[in-house]
């Protein structure tokens, strides 16, 4: 657990090290905002996962959305 948390933090520092200076130099603010959004959300979710807390599964939500249609398809195919 601790190992993965440290690992995630190291990877994050590495990614910032590689990408951010170039972005600032070229003054690509929109890219920087997008980059930060994905990185911060990714790191937070990654850390939650590393603490072995169960993450919600997006496929469960999609299943709920599509359940009327998939039931209907099941009926047709049977």
């Amino acid at each position: 657990m601790l190992k993965s948390i440290v690992g995630i933090i190291f990877i994050t520092i590495g990614i910032i090290w590689v990408e951010v200076p170039a972005l600032l130099k070229k003054k690509q603010i929109k890219e920087l905002v997008c980059f930060s959004f994905f990185l911060i959300s990714g790191v937070v979710t990654g850390l939650i996962a590393a603490m072995q807390i169960d993450l919600p599964n997006p496929y469960d939500w999609i299943r709920v959305i599509y359940s009327p249609i998939s039931d209907w398809i099941d009926n047709i195919l049977q």
């Binding site: 990877i11 990614i15 890219e31 990185l39 990714g42 997006p58 496929y59």
Partner: peptide, 27 residues
């Protein structure tokens, strides 16, 4: 969608998301 000039800076963060999702979507 976001009118970016260059997609390359986003590759690593999105890759991170893909790893996380790949561990979550199929239990």
């Amino acid at each position: 969608t976001f009118r970016l000039k260059d997609y390359r800076p986003l590759v690593f963060p999105v890759g991170m998301w893909i790893v996380i999702l790949s561990l979550v979507i199929y239990p």
